[in-house]
Design a protein around this nucleic acid. Structure first.
Lengths: 364, 364
DNA sequence: TACTTGAATCTAAGCGCTTAGATTTGTTCA
DNA sequence: TGAACAAATCTAAGCGCTTAGATTCAAGTA
């Protein structure tokens, strides 16, 4: 059973040889102490330590058919509302003189990810992360082949590849639209009641009547859809005028628009409200407004959705609807862990509650 | 070449059989398109798609001896200054009514981790995360066997296991003390100049003279050591009285201490300054002070170190020294990626600059 | 003494993939 | 027509590990 004991990492064969036992005994020494005589085990372990043995996770996984790792697949939303690219200054010329931009981190996905991490950690699972720029069937398939289960964030993916993966591995979809074919586990939030309580607040507490919905095409996730529909329904239920379409934020920018926003407001009449599809967009708009002298909430009222950290740092702070992001991430990991690597038998879902967080931007 | 084509995930053998080719051709179809006739390739790929094939990363890694994944190993610092445990509410009973605690997230490690993630992503490497509660030689070794290189955050680990891993895999140590044996790549910050400019600010701008260093035993990282020494050196250079030992935060708490802090200040005399080893500690202390009526910066001046986000949200905001956390994480990943899985030949290091960030807590 | 028994250890197959080298097939040219 | 060569495909070994089943051996039993 001669093996090349080349310069690479030492293997069980190297240990076996040096300890004068078979590889079976080596393996037993690590994993079934009772099946080997104490002094033999001792000897094996010592040899292993002294030659610097590191077990190969790949070989192990190959045998067991399990990796003991859960995956989280996300999409670089780099070309965001803000249009920034995340070119990486790998060198040390980091921008230290400015406060890090909270509109880049931590975002929604980061907080969900944190929950996922915590849960993996407490289940002793490794966490494998991959985030890609564009959809890439191969990449996703390869990724799926690395883990016992995975959660996928919103982003452009062909349904087909998702189905393909779900056929072999349990997949959790985070705030993603329903798929047709294979079973998935959907994790979502109660957008409807969130939006209702937001509108209720704007109307009943602040007496607003002119309310628009703002969302850009880039953000057309499921949430976008649901939120806009609930938005319309809420206004309709109150007999207020219901926008047929969401506003694209670009129409808000430009000198005429800014001037208009500042002027529009007549004494005694409440300002217009812009209900944004999420915090990121709201904060971006807030930024532009501030730059151009449009005052929030005096000239116009602005609200977000999600409850990202940045909304607590902005001036004014951002009224929003908070999602239990960490809990959602935890739940995703927990459900995957429970599946033990077997694809779901049937689709299932969990809907998390949300909570209105009134802050300054709505006039509170 | 009969293989059991059981109910498990389909393999190259299944594809080969269905497409009536050998496994070699299957493999070539995926990875060496030029070595197979276009129509054959087409056929193979179609079969693969239709039977729901997912390549096994384990098998691949086993063959290649590389995983194309980089690891980040961290320690649950859960039993922190704050003494909270991170018991996981996996269920939906998340606490939605309160703002998430920024003293739990994002912290120093999270921001470094983000940089690491970004760099992995842009190099097409998967990122494997593991965070453990206590040192556990086996766990760390297993983890190391999963990746082509890894970075390790500060935390209690036996040096020996670190050495063992470093012998076979490139290891980056983040703000960790120098080791003796094997080569490592150290990533650190210029604690010295950071501390100097902080002291300079307190003394030269605010005219302070009574300056103490606060740090708890839990935080005894390398940074602790360096920062305290620079702290002493700075004071000494200015002829101010130099504390021989750091204060443990516990001595600051208790009614007598609070009362004392409020009383001490005589008109015209500047308040005492508490230079904390890091932001987390400073913010925790700030919290306690606020609860007990000790005013910052009026009664006492407080500074941190690191530049975590929470310091921008506290009242008052926290004067600190900012580290380029994201850049450090990026650099770690970048260096590991460059090593192509080969352990370092010799130790090396990179020291990142820091930047004083004066905010309200120092009286600015 | 011959025989059973169980503990300790070993042999060898196999996990799913890649790839060097062998084989087959098709084409070109003397 | 057959040799020479290239293209397409195949055979089979091997990556490092685990584990069922075989083997060895010492102790216990009749």
């Amino acid at each position: 059973m001669e093996r090349k004991s080349a310069g690479g990492r030492p293997t069980v064969y190297d240990i076996a040889e040096a300890a004068n036992v078979s590889t079976a005994t080596v393996s037993f020494s690590f994993h079934h102490p009772d099946r080997v005589r104490p002094e033999t085990r001792e000897r094996v372990l010592n040899v292993a330590r002294s030659i610097g043995y590191l077990p190969s996770a790949s070989a192990r996984s190959l045998v067991h058919g399990r990796t003991n790792a859960l995956g989280l697949y996300s999409f670089d939303l780099i070309l965001d509302a803000k249009g920034e690219t995340a070119e990486g200054g790998t060198t040390k010329d980091a921008v230290l003189s400015e406060e890090p931009d909270v509109l880049l981190y931590p975002l929604y996905v980061d907080e969900v990810q944190r929950g996922f991490e915590l849960e993996c950690s407490s289940n002793g699972q490794a966490l494998v992360l991959d985030s890609v720029a564009s959809q890439d069937a191969g990449r996703m398939a390869d990724f799926a082949g690395r883990v016992d289960g995975l959660a996928v964030f919103p982003g452009r993916t062909e349904d087909e590849i998702l189905e393909r993966v779900a056929r072999r591995v349990p997949v959790v979809l985070l705030s993603r639209p329903m798929q047709s074919g294979m079973p998935f586990y959907y994790i979502q939030v109660d957008n409807d009641s969130g939006m209702r309580s937001l509108i209720s607040h704007l109307v009943d507490v602040h007496g607003l009547t002119d309310i628009q919905f703002v969302g850009s095409l880039v953000d057309e996730t499921t949430d976008f859809q649901f939120r806009f529909e609930s938005f319309q329904a809420s206004l309709r239920a109150r007999g207020l005028s219901v926008p047929a379409k969401p506003l694209n934020q670009t129409v808000l920018f430009g000198e005429e628009s800014f001037a208009n926003l500042k002027r529009t407001r007549r004494p005694g009449q409440p300002p217009q409200a812009l209900v944004c599809v999420n915090d990121q967009l709201a904060l971006y708009i807030l930024d532009e407004f501030t730059k151009h002298g449009v005052r929030v909430p005096e000239d116009v009222i602005l609200t977000g959705f999600d409850g990202i950290l940045a909304g607590r740092l902005s001036k004014p702070t951002l009224t929003t609807v908070r999602q239990p992001m960490e809990a959602m991430g935890r739940h995703a990991a927990s459900v995957l862990y429970g599946s033990a690597g077997k694809p779901w038998d049937e689709s299932d879902s969990a809907t998390f509650p949300v909570q209105l967080v009134p802050r300054q931007s709505c006039g509170c």
